[in-house]
Structure formats: C-alpha cells, structure tokens
Computed example of a mutant assay.
Amino acid sequence: MAHSPFKQTYFHGTKAVLKIGEYITTGISSNYGQNKNAKFIYLSATLDAAVWGAELALGDGRERIYLVEPTGPIEDDPNLTDKKFPGNPSLSYRSKDPFKVVGEITIWAGHPDDQVNTMKMHLAKLKDDGIEAIED
C-alpha cells in the first residue's frame, strides 16, 4: 500500500466557537475592521500569523486557533503582502470559498501583552484616520 502525501493544513485564528467538520464561510461578520460582512475569509500556513488573528479578532470570547482546509483556491492576502511585507513571509492567504475546520490547536503561546496592545493601538489609529485595516 502506497502512502499518500500529507495535505497542507492551514491555521485560522479567531474568537468564534467552531466545531470540527463545520465550515467557515464568507458573508458573516468579519473578525476585524468595521465588523462588516466578510467578502473573504483568511488563513495562514504559519502559527504566528494565526496567533495574531486570534489576538486581534473582535469580541470578548476566548482566542482560538483552528486547523482548516480550503475547499477552493486561495490567494495571497493583500493586507499582509507587498504593501506591508514584500512577498508573503507570513504565508497568509484569503479565499471566497469555505474552509473546513479539521482540528483545533489548544496549546499555544500568545504574544506579550505590550506587543498586542501596541498593535491594537496602531489599528485603532488607522481606524481613526479612516483607513480600513482589511482590504476587500
């Protein structure tokens, strides 16, 4: 019996409570920015980017990181590529197609509180300046 190659699994950071087998879709309230209906959903191949996603997500729930599989094509996340970081060092992507939740990372370390607070203040300043943090 030949072994099949591993499928690339990605991470999705959020405060939403999701179940294994559930799908993350567009059209729901975004975790970021003005909390409008999301035209894209986001994932990353790095745990660090997913940690940021969980830490910066809107809401009061517990920060969570899910393992997800895209069901369709993904593209580089323009919010983190080229404009801010040449190439795609965070390996962050977006899609209009659902992501299937295949697991949850329950043990992970967050960023230091001062680093998270600095990032949140930066995002608040962008909002005050009328700059939307998420480009749809």
Score class of each variant (00 low, 15 high):
65 I>F: 06
76 D>P: 03
59 G>E: 05
81 T>S: 10
98 P>A: 13
136 D>N: 15
54 A>I: 14
53 G>P: 12
41 I>T: 00
21 G>I: 04
90 S>V: 08
37 N>D: 08
48 D>R: 05
25 T>S: 11
78 P>H: 03
92 S>E: 12
14 T>M: 10
79 N>I: 12
96 K>P: 01
61 G>C: 04
89 P>L: 05
76 D>Q: 03
15 K>Y: 08
16 A>W: 09
6 F>Q: 15
4 S>F: 11
8 Q>G: 04
50 A>F: 02
58 L>W: 06
91 L>D: 08
97 D>S: 14
97 D>M: 06
63 E>C: 14
73 P>Y: 09
68 V>C: 08
64 R>F: 03
117 N>R: 06
81 T>G: 12
115 Q>M: 10
29 S>P: 06
32 Y>Q: 07
8 Q>W: 05
100 K>Q: 11
12 H>R: 05
11 F>Q: 02
80 L>I: 06
72 G>N: 14
13 G>Y: 05
22 E>G: 01
30 S>I: 04
15 K>I: 09
53 G>H: 05
34 Q>G: 04
133 A>K: 11
109 A>Y: 03
26 T>C: 15
34 Q>F: 08
60 D>M: 09
89 P>V: 01
79 N>E: 09
95 S>G: 02
85 F>T: 07
128 D>P: 00
98 P>F: 11
134 I>E: 12
80 L>N: 13
10 Y>S: 10
10 Y>R: 02
134 I>R: 12
15 K>A: 01
54 A>F: 09
117 N>M: 10
68 V>Q: 02
60 D>W: 02
54 A>T: 12
107 I>T: 07
124 A>K: 14
82 D>K: 14
23 Y>E: 14
100 K>D: 06
56 L>S: 07
101 V>M: 02
28 I>E: 13
135 E>N: 07
120 K>V: 14
40 F>P: 00
23 Y>R: 09
78 P>L: 13
45 A>L: 15
39 K>V: 05
98 P>K: 03
40 F>G: 00
32 Y>E: 08
20 I>F: 00
96 K>Q: 15
9 T>H: 04
53 G>Y: 03
65 I>Y: 10
59 G>M: 05
7 K>R: 08
52 W>I: 11
63 E>G: 08
97 D>W: 14
95 S>M: 00
11 F>T: 03
